[in-house]
């Protein structure tokens, strides 16, 4: 659960934070220095313009997650349609993002037609897209080969990679490939060794953004919402002054701050899932049709100069 979202001694604040996170009305969060606070959308959008100059140019990027192209069940009869709506939302943003990251479960069943449609829909944005797979993208006969053939060019191992943008180091991790019976997500020793090498020699003042599918902190063991060997990765990241971990998988917004590491789970564009422990299973949450789009959404992330906290705006497809 999110018990360590805030100091245990201040349940009121914690409860309020959780409440606001669930409501997710497009509030903007800045998380840093052990404190969380909200500023207005206008301030956030104006921030990059005010911060002109310097070594690293301010920029924003977009997170999109769990499009589940091919899903057609009571919780959402047409996940392609809502993915298209999410893409239209991106096109309408006042500040054009530099690129998009997709944090997995691109498809429902890893079928070629689903991958084809997903690529076609996201291409409408005209923006570069960086993917990581979810477990739903590993269901081809080759156990993820179909994903790798499409999105793994230049990646290492099972598909992990890193890149730099305007002074920020982005790391794409795969935690859905080596799943073990009774376990949760898994990074595996090869990927952890690669991560160690990738981070070695980088200044601790380099802002780091890690993106992956399953959460890197344990939200629910009963539902498998976590990553078994996440602590080893976090140990390698701890020396950095600003680390932001973005993931999908649980189809809802939850934030957590642990030292200099901020964790943020994202909404799906396909269907919501229940809050941990509030339902018999983590299966798709069926909400009234006119409320579905309020439970789906996209996330804009703004990077300001100087390694400060990243600013997040979670926007539902409809209010």
């Amino acid at each position: 659960m999110t018990d360590d979202l805030e100091e245990p001694a201040v349940p009121g604040r914690r409860a309020a934070l959780k409440c606001m996170a669930w409501a997710g009305t497009g509030a903007l969060w800045t998380l840093g220095g052990g404190l969380a606070g909200a500023v207005s959308l206008d301030q956030a959008l104006a921030a990059p313009k005010r911060m002109g100059g310097g070594v690293a140019a301010p920029f924003s990027f977009l997170q999109i997650s769990d499009s589940h192209v091919g899903f057609a069940k009571p919780a959402n009869p047409d996940a392609r349609a809502t993915y298209r709506e999410a893409v239209a939302k991106i096109a309408g943003l006042p500040v054009k993002p530099a690129f998009i990251i997709h944090t997995g479960d691109i498809t429902q069943l890893s079928r070629d037609a689903e991958f084809d449609d997903a690529e076609q829909i996201i291409r409408e944005t005209g923006l570069p897209v960086f993917h990581v797979p979810g477990e739903h993208d590993m269901l081809d006969d080759g156990n993820g080969q179909a994903y790798l053939d499409r999105f793994g060019k230049g990646a290492k191992g099972d598909g992990w990679y890193s890149f730099d943008h305007s002074g920020v180091h982005f790391v794409a991790l795969i935690n859905v490939k080596l799943l073990k019976p009774g376990g949760m997500g898994q990074l595996g020793p090869d990927q952890l060794a690669w991560l160690k090498d990738d981070l070695a020699g980088r200044s601790s003042s380099t802002p780091i953004v890690v993106f992956t599918h399953m959460p890197l902190w344990t939200i629910s063991t009963d539902w498998g919402w976590g990553t078994d060997d996440a602590q080893q990765a976090l140990g390698l990241l701890r020396r950095f002054g600003s680390v932001t971990v973005l993931n999908g998988h649980i189809h809802q917004v939850i934030h957590k701050l642990e030292g200099h590491v901020a964790f943020h789970t994202a909404r799906s564009t396909a269907f919501p899932q229940p809050a941990p422990g509030t339902a018999p299973s983590p299966g798709p949450l069926v909400v009234p049709a006119d409320r579905l789009r309020a439970a789906l959404g996209i996330r804009e992330v703004s990077v300001t100069r100087g390694g400060g906290p990243l600013a997040l705006i979670d926007t539902p497809l409809a209010s």
Partner: peptide, 30 residues
């Protein structure tokens, strides 16, 4: 293979002993 809603999978057991299994998408399911 991945079993979508309503799909079935059958296996005939011809050797004595215990076989543990799991869901490779949701490995907490055993």
């Amino acid at each position: 293979k991945p079993l979508d809603t309503g799909d079935r999978f059958s296996f005939t057991f011809t050797k004595p002993g215990e076989v543990a299994y799991f869901c490779s998408l949701h490995p907490h399911m055993t």
